[in-house]
C-alpha cells in the first residue's frame, strides 16, 4: 500500500518557509517597523511547526489500522479538478478586464462559466448575461458614476 502523507505536513512546511522568507525581509526595515512583523512571524513559524507535527501524527493514523476512524478527508489536487478549472476561467476573466473592457469581458465570462456549468439553454445564458450587464450599468455606471476599465471594446 502506498504511504499516505496528510496535507498538514506540507502546509506546516509551507508556513515555515513563508515565515522565514518574510522574516528575512525585516532586515531592510527600520527598527520601529521591523518589531511587530518579527513577533508575528515567529508566532507563525511556531504554529507552522505545530501543524507539521499534527500532520505527521495524522499521517501515522492514516497508515495504521485505524484509518477508517478518521473523518477528515485528505486534500489532493486530483479531487478538485473542477474547481481549479472554474478558477482558471475566473483568472482569464480578470486578466481580460483591462484588455477588453469591463462589459465585454463580463459577457464572455458569463457565457464561459455557464457553459462550464453545463447550462446549454441559450435563452437562460442570454437572459443572465443581459440581466447582469444592465443591472451593473444602471446601478454603477449611471447611478454611482463608477468608471470601469474600458479596454479595446466596451
Amino acid at each position: 500500500m502506498k504511504r499516505i502523507i496528510h496535507h498538514d505536513v506540507y502546509i506546516g512546511i509551507f508556513m515555515l518557509l513563508i515565515s522565514l522568507f518574510l522574516y528575512s525581509m525585516t532586515g531592510d526595515m527600520p527598527e520601529g517597523s521591523a518589531f511587530f512583523p518579527k513577533i508575528i512571524l515567529t508566532i507563525f513559524a511556531f504554529f507552522g511547526v505545530l501543524v507539521f507535527i499534527q500532520g505527521v501524527r495524522k499521517s501515522k493514523v492514516y497508515n495504521s489500522e485505524n484509518a477508517k476512524k478518521m473523518e477528515e478527508e485528505i486534500f489532493s489536487f486530483l479531487k478538485i479538478k473542477t474547481p481549479m478549472a472554474a478558477l482558471l476561467i475566473v483568472l482569464v476573466y480578470v486578466a481580460l478586464l483591462k484588455i477588453l473592457g469591463f462589459f465585454s469581458a463580463t459577457s464572455l465570462f458569463i457565457i464561459a462559466f455557464m457553459y462550464f456549468y453545463q447550462v446549454r439553454s441559450i435563452k437562460k445564458i442570454i437572459l443572465t448575461l443581459i440581466g447582469v450587464n444592465v443591472f451593473v450599468y444602471l446601478l454603477f455606471v449611471l447611478q454611482l458614476n463608477v468608471a470601469f476599465p474600458k479596454g479595446l471594446l466596451f
Binding site: G131, F135, L139, L142, Q143
Partner: peptide, 14 residues
Amino acid sequence: IIALLVICLFALSI
C-alpha cells in the same frame, strides 16, 4: 428581486 431593484433605482434617480 430584479423588479425590486429597478423600482429602487427608479426612486433614486427620481
